[in-house]
Simulated assay, not measured.
Amino acid sequence: MFPAKFQAVIFAFIMSGFMAFLMSGILTFINLGWFSGFVVAWLNAYLYAHACAFPLVFVFAPLSRRLTARLIKAPGFSGN
């Protein structure tokens, strides 16, 4: 489908899409409660959230991987 060189961009797009969709729904509900136009308000918030989340995930994913690698013991490391 896509060349491997696009893996990071596609990962960031998909991950940010899931996170923005869920978080915008949760926060729309917390802030406004359930009302007749909830789904439209949620989808509107999602469009803004994904537009922000995509570049942020793309930029911060490498940092997150490095920090995670520092926090996880390597296989076979006894820690003594």
Rank of each mutant, 00 (worst) to 15 (best):
M15L: 12
T28S: 15
F2I: 05
L63K: 02
Y48F: 14
S24L: 03
P75T: 00
M1C: 07
F35C: 00
A49F: 09
A41T: 07
A74H: 01
T28L: 05
A12L: 00
A69G: 02
F58Q: 06
V59R: 07
M1Y: 02
R65V: 10
S36D: 15
V39K: 06
L32E: 15
F38W: 14
H50E: 12
T68Q: 04
G37C: 05
F13W: 06
V40T: 14
P62N: 05
K73S: 14
G17M: 06
A53Y: 08
T68L: 08
R65T: 02
F21R: 01
A74Y: 01
F2N: 13
F6V: 03
N80S: 11
L32K: 10
A61R: 02
A4Y: 06
Y46H: 01
V39W: 13
L67C: 14
F18C: 15
G25C: 09
S36I: 08
A51Q: 01
P3G: 10
V57F: 11
F54D: 11
G37D: 09
S64C: 04
F21M: 13
R66G: 03
I30K: 06
A12E: 09
V9G: 05
H50M: 07
S16I: 04
R70D: 07
F29C: 09
N31K: 12
S24P: 12
A4K: 13
A41K: 02
A12Y: 02
F13E: 03
I30P: 01
P3I: 00
F60D: 05
M23W: 10
S64E: 04
I72Q: 11
F13A: 15
I72M: 08
L32F: 10
Q7W: 02
A45S: 14
P3N: 01
A41F: 00
L43D: 01
N44E: 04
W34D: 12
